[in-house]
Amino acid sequence: MLTPDEAAALALSLRVAAISVIVSLPFALALAWLLSRKRVPGRALIEALLFLPLTLPPVVTGYALLVLFGRNGAIGQWLAAAGIVFAFRWTGAVLAAAVMGFPLLVLSIRVAFDNLDRRLERAAETLGAGAWRRFFTIVLPLSSGGILAGCVLAFARAFGEFGATISFVSNIPGETRTLPIAIYELMSVPGGEAGVQRLTVVAFVVALAATLIAALLGGALWRRRADD
């Protein structure tokens, strides 16, 4: 059984990961759509920036978030004036998790959009459906497998987020101490090994479940395409 502190860390991690995916999904859908369907100027630069969180050391991403979204940061000071604070808050952990999971989310959705049979959209167009109706009635339902798989992968990435989170929002019990940070903390205190083992098992189960679900969703997508 988990101690109350460990359970709190697990609950926080689940909440942060889930909210990060929900919040970033509309942006990911929009960006994936642009990259899949539109001629965007500076596409290469956008793609390079998009993948930056995957290639940069997470600590650097966390530091960049602190510089941008800290209380005195370029964006953070304006947001603070409006009462929105990220630094050292659980909302900051959500932001860090969202940034780190975003590339996976966009990539999965974009592949789903790219694989869609565009002739169906053309057919919908001849039936009088405008762009938004086509998006919500044809594109979204037919890409749902890829979108869900992307959500699961981004969730798993967010659930395991450590470097960017600890450098951006630190390690505050009950506020920003997510499961990976709790494991790191327990590793550095005497007698923490049992807790480390318990949380490691939890992390292992969640990550495995997520990748399994993503694989099953991806597989279902492939089968459906093969049937077409």
């Binding site: 002739r119 169906l120 053309r122 057919a123 919908a124 167009e125 001849t126 039936l127 009088g128 459906a129 405008g130 009635t137 044809i138 037919l142 459906r224 077409d228």
Partner: peptide
């Protein structure tokens, strides 16, 4: 979408 034409494609193109 505004031409008000009905188009029957060779392959049907029903929404699966």
């Amino acid at each position: 979408a505004r031409r008000q034409i009905g188009y029957v494609f060779q392959d049907g193109r029903l929404f699966p």
